[in-house]
């Protein structure tokens, strides 16, 4: 069954078509990867799915429900969670508190209940804390629970972000370059982790540069180039796809296109920070 359906999605920045008529589906319980050279529109695609950007055309359906026009927080409540390429943790809060925020959608204590510290909220609060601790434990960073996140090492921050995303108990997890900045050993661990996540019944859509990781864990791969989908297949088939090979290996020959690529990357970045 298709959990996420993306149909004819479009988004331009000025004259640049960052995502151009992209369609694909992600099946329940699968791991799907989106790859492509820098500036291919991968992060823009994620931002369109998660509601941080509005598409110019096309639609995104999640569990059969149209996501267009919904706010990111509404989409999150439907069971879609994500991590960021450049880690976005809540500064000034501990690792545990960061993960506890992830439980927001799975808890209900409101404004007044919180202000009055009603006994009814105590059990829920304990539950949030226990579940969050559990996730930190799963990520192997339980000992960092009470440290402020900005004091953690890069790999640990990434782990906290993972735990936070999992704390929402998502049906679909979007991972934006989960292995960026990690060494080979750590990348292998991330791969293991993603498999473990899938075993819990969570569908995963990831953007990744690390080919070995992508080929290793993905069920299916979508290849984007200059905003367009040029291939969608199983890992082995993608490795043999002439078009894909040309894009990855032939990049040098298309030196003249370098400028545009960078422009795409920059404009994508800008919109992300402003959104």
């Amino acid at each position: 069954m298709a959990l996420l359906e993306i149909a004819n999605l479009n988004r331009s920045f000025g004259g640049l078509r960052a995502v151009n008529d992209v369609s694909f589906t992600v099946h329940q319980g699968s791991i799907k990867a989106v790859i492509g050279p820098n500036g291919a529109g991968k992060t823009t695609l994620f931002n369109l799915i998660a509601g941080n950007l509005a598409p110019d055309g096309g639609e995104v359906r999640f569990n059969g429900r149209r996501l267009n026009g919904l706010l990111p927080c509404q989409i999150a409540r439907l069971g879609l969670s994500r991590t960021y390429q450049n880690i976005k943790l809540f500064a000034g809060m501990t690792a545990l508190e960061n993960v506890m925020v992830g439980r927001h959608v799975r808890s209900r204590a409101g404004f007044l209940a919180g202000m009055l510290n009603l006994p009814a909220t105590w059990a829920e609060e304990r539950c949030i804390r226990d579940k969050s601790m559990e996730l930190l434990d799963l990520m192997g960073i339980a000992e960092c629970a009470d440290l402020e996140v900005t004091n953690l090492a890069f790999g640990q921050q990434r782990a906290v972000e993972f735990a936070r995303a999992l704390a929402t108990e998502p049906a679909l997890l979007l991972l934006d370059e989960p292995a960026a900045g990690l060494n080979i050993y750590e990348t292998g661990e991330v791969g293991e982790l993603i498999r473990k996540i899938r075993q819990q019944g969570i569908t995963v859509l990831l953007v990744e540069h690390d080919m070995s990781l992508v080929m290793d864990i993905s069920d299916e791969i979508v290849v984007l180039s200059f905003g367009e989908k040029i291939a969608e297949d199983q890992p082995l088939a993608i490795q043999q796809n002439q078009e894909v090979i040309r894009i990855y290996l032939g990049e040098e020959e298309e030196g003249s296109a370098g400028g545009t690529e960078n422009a795409a990357d920059v404009s994508g970045e800008r919109v992300v920070t402003h959104a």
């Binding site: 998660a50 941080n52 706010l71 990111p72 927080c73 999150a76 409540r77 969670s81 994500r82 960021y84 976005k88 943790l89 809540f90 500064a91 000034g92 809060m93 508190e97 960061n98 506890m100 925020v101 992830g102 927001h104 959608v105 808890s107 204590a109 409101g110 404004f111 209940a113 919180g114 202000m115 510290n117 909220t121 829920e124 609060e125 949030i128 936070r164 929402t168 992300v272 959104a275």
Partner: peptide, 21 residues
């Protein structure tokens, strides 16, 4: 409380807070 945590999250990284619902 839960709401207070959400508030601090907004202050820390508004976009990510939104992504957490």
């Amino acid at each position: 409380s839960r709401v207070g945590r959400a508030l601090r999250a907004i202050h820390g990284a508004e976009e990510a807070a939104g992504a957490m619902g």
